Computed example of a mutant assay.
Amino acid sequence: MLVAPALGAEGREARFGDDRPLTDAELAPVRALAAPAARLAFSGPAARCRQTAAALGLAPAVEPALADLDAGAWRGRPLAELVTTAPESVASWLSDPAFAPPGGESVAALCARVGGWLAGLPDGGGRVLAVVDPAVVRAALVHALALPPAAFWRLDVAPLTATELSGRSGRWNLRCGAPLPLARPVATGVTSSTID
């Protein structure tokens, strides 16, 4: 089960991998949620992944193979700026899975890295949960479902949703975009104090 972290300033600003920590306000919605039960818990190394996992009550192992796409020289820069200053490079990045930003990683390399992690999971070992960046979720889906790497940009991953791969390496099944459950059930009935 792959859980996307809370949305922080980096995501709202479409800024490449500057790994800003989440604020208390950005973490507040996470604290109302519960992590799905799992035998093993992992987190990508980004602060937003580790903070989201902690706010869900997890104590995950930080897994370097689950790091976000390395943006290289683009790190910390907003996408809008790069569209203006390097439009050909951005167009190549969005259309060619083998293209990498200067000093960075290609989508194809990310898919291979995350695919190697998935393939290394033990068969029949029970549920595994990982709080990871949306790019890592996309890469896992491309690998698990044997999609062409160009499909990477066609997969949307919303914050604080779970994408579940069940089965095993070579035969994965997909359940995508499930909201995380609330930590405490919300009362839904009418009470006498709400009636005039």
Rank of each mutant, 00 (worst) to 15 (best):
A28M: 04
A71M: 13
R154H: 15
V137K: 06
D18S: 13
R175H: 12
V107N: 01
R184F: 11
P64E: 03
A25V: 11
E13K: 05
S95W: 07
L180K: 04
A67P: 09
G124I: 13
A34S: 15
T188I: 09
A54S: 14
P29R: 02
L145S: 08
A41E: 07
A146Y: 00
S92I: 00
A4R: 15
A98E: 15
G57M: 06
L118G: 07
W153Q: 13
A112K: 01
A54M: 06
R138F: 09
A73G: 10
P148R: 12
A6W: 08
W117Y: 15
T52C: 03
A71I: 10
R171G: 15
P64S: 04
L155K: 00
A91Y: 05
L160I: 11
P78M: 03
D196G: 13
W74M: 06
A25L: 09
A55W: 12
A187H: 09
L58K: 13
A80M: 03
L182V: 09
A35P: 12
L182S: 13
S106N: 02
R113F: 00
L33W: 08
P185V: 07
G126N: 05
R39I: 01
T161G: 05
A46R: 11
A139S: 09
F99P: 11
D70L: 07
V142G: 07
P87R: 00
S193E: 13
